[in-house]
């Protein structure tokens, strides 16, 4: 790999000269340590029940579908019915996520379930989520050994199991939750905020779904 240290010295030196800065700024280091919030819109600063309503409304607005379920045991039925309703094959690729272990897939023997990262042939995936952001109806998904990112992008249909308690107001609230995990909360390789299915307006400014990522995003909002 080429050594870019002289470029580094020159760029930083030029910046310092222009700014009259000698050894960096205490102010900046403090901001990094304290990470203060900026203005957070009032929209999502609500009671939790209202945040859940807002999340559902916002997600629906961006063409995701949301289905409420009483518990994880209802997930296999809901997935099977959702796929059947769209005439899609009853085959799913599921994240090997311990959080999803409680889902009794064997109750639906007609559903073909496999676990792992996504393959090109997978038509539908089921993953968990780390949070749902009410302000924009976004899902927040973290990568990890049990949570391959390819599941979020390769299949045509992405089904996300989101627990009601995972709904937060804003992106800031979600970062707080992540930081609250301590060491486990350091940034994973990939954090995806997903707001509706893939789309493009690149041909004549007409919005079409399913450009490169999933055409369908179905959220199973589960009571817990």
């Amino acid at each position: 790999m080429a050594d870019t240290s002289s470029a580094r010295a020159q760029i930083l030196g030029g910046i310092r000269k222009a700014l009259g800065s000698v050894e960096g700024s205490e102010d900046a280091r403090k901001r990094l340590a304290v990470h203060p919030r900026n203005l957070v819109p009032a929209r999502a600063q609500l009671q939790h029940a209202d945040q859940v309503e807002l999340f559902t409304r916002m997600a629906t607005e961006v063409a995701a579908t949301v289905e409420r379920l009483p518990g994880l045991s209802d997930v296999p039925r809901a997935v099977a019915e959702y796929l059947a309703g769209l005439n899609l094959p009853a085959e799913i690729r599921v994240a090997p996520d311990a959080d999803l272990d409680a889902i009794p897939w064997d109750q639906r023997p007609t559903l073909t379930v496999s676990k792992g990262r996504a393959r090109d042939s997978d038509g539908a995936s089921v993953t968990g989520a780390f949070a749902g952001v009410a302000e924009t109806g976004s899902l927040m998904l973290l990568s990890g050994t049990e949570r391959p990112t390819t599941l979020n992008f390769l299949p045509d249909t992405h089904i996300v199991v989101l627990k009601r308690s995972q709904v937060v107001g804003t992106m800031e609230d979600a970062w707080d939750r992540l930081r609250g995990l301590g060491v486990a909360g350091t940034m994973p390789r990939t954090v995806n905020f997903i707001t509706g299915p893939s789309r493009t307006g690149d041909i004549e400014m007409r919005i079409e779904l399913g450009a490169h990522g999933p055409r369908r995003l179905h959220i199973l909002l589960v009571e817990d």
Partner: peptide, 9 residues
């Protein structure tokens, strides 16, 4: 848009 479809860190 309120948010783009994918914001990835």
């Amino acid at each position: 848009q309120e948010a783009s479809a994918y914001t990835t860190f």
